[in-house]
């Protein structure tokens, strides 16, 4: 009898029926009622945003989609060519060269900035003299407009009289061509991206670390855990959700990053630092080929969506665990 009662209670609970015996509202009855006044109110609140969202985002996306299957330019929409622009783009060596650099740029940008951001967030969690000032100074690369940053970096590395080439020369490394050598230009652009991005990661990680209960560390310490064990078994798992979110965001920032690359190298030398977004820009606005240019952008978007979905699934997995 008792067993039966408990089973019934569990069954009731699964169905959403409370102890008082009142269950969840009758779904069938609700359907008959139609749209409630509350729903209308919520819709009215949401409508302006939805309207602007559709107007500002959906229309351009649809228009761009149409452009990607036509052979037009900036003025003339051109003729329908089906998927020709996509096949042309995917068979061009320049697309795959740009894809390769985009992947390198994104991996270095995401994980480079994350490692530095996490390290600084951990450092600033301890008592550092003038920690507040440090935090403000460390935010500068993120706060300063990228045009200013790019000009500064150009001054830092572009000519033989720039500080870094002069330093390299003084160290006996000879005339180091930070921007003119294709490999070094890639390295320089990636380092620039990490420099611009680490403050964002630092803020994300700092807020995640702030949410970790100090008592957990104390308990682990009492159990004899080393600093590394605390970091790897407590800190990392507990900030993993924020970490995945920051990776998703930074992946999107890196793949879509146009000014960092374009202002520093213009995509050169000899296309060495041309990413997909730079290639798309140059195809549309310098070659006046909107179809292939927009097709590149759509391929990028598709890849970004896939990467985001994979990382979001990882976040859900973390939540469940």
């Amino acid at each position: 009898m008792a067993t039966s009662t408990i089973t019934n209670r569990i069954e009731k609970a699964r169905k959403g029926v409370g102890v008082s015996g009142q269950g969840a509202p009758d779904q069938g009855r609700k359907k008959k009622k139609g749209i409630s006044a509350r729903a209308w109110t919520l819709f009215a609140f949401a409508f302006p945003s939805l309207f602007l969202l559709v107007l500002l985002n959906l229309y351009p996306v649809i228009y761009a989609g149409i452009q990607s299957v036509r052979d037009g330019d900036l003025i003339d929409p051109g003729n329908f060519v089906g998927l020709k622009n996509y096949t042309d783009v995917l068979t061009q060596p320049s697309f795959w060269t740009a894809t390769r650099f985009t992947i390198i740029f994104t991996i270095v940008g995401v994980f480079g900035s994350w490692l530095i951001g996490l390290a600084l967030a951990l450092l600033l969690r301890t008592r550092v003299p003038a920690g507040g000032l440090f935090k403000v100074l460390l935010l500068l690369p993120w706060v300063v407009p990228v045009v200013v940053s790019a000009t500064s970096w150009n001054w830092l590395v572009a000519t033989p009289q720039s500080p870094l080439p002069m330093l390299a020369n003084a160290l006996g490394l000879g005339n180091v061509l930070f921007l003119a050598d294709p490999v070094l230009a890639q390295v320089t652009v990636c380092v620039f991206k990490v420099w611009v991005s680490f403050p964002f990661m630092m803020m994300m990680m700092a807020s995640a670390l702030a949410a970790v209960d100090v008592n957990v560390y104390e308990a682990a310490k009492m159990d004899g855990a080393t600093n590394w064990q605390s970091f790897s078994h407590i800190t990392m798992p507990m900030i993993s959700r924020s970490t995945y979110i920051s990776w998703i965001l930074m992946t999107i920032f890196c793949v879509n990053d146009f000014p960092t690359i374009f202002l520093l190298t213009g995509g050169g030398p000899v296309d060495a630092t041309t990413s997909l977004v730079v290639l798309s820009y140059r195809t549309v606005f310098q070659n006046f080929q909107t179809g292939p240019g927009v097709a590149i952008a759509f391929v990028m978007t598709l890849v970004l969506v896939i990467v985001s979905v994979v990382l979001y699934r990882q976040i859900r997995k973390v939540n469940i665990e």
């Binding site: 150009n154 572009a158 000519t159 009289q161 003119a180 190298t265």
Partner: peptide, 20 residues
């Protein structure tokens, strides 16, 4: 100048100014 390939207009002007 071996770095010429990536010089901006401002870099070029600065090299003229530096008498290089």
């Amino acid at each position: 100048d071996p770095a010429s390939a990536t010089y901006t207009s401002a870099n070029v002007d600065s090299q003229w100014e530096a008498r290089t």
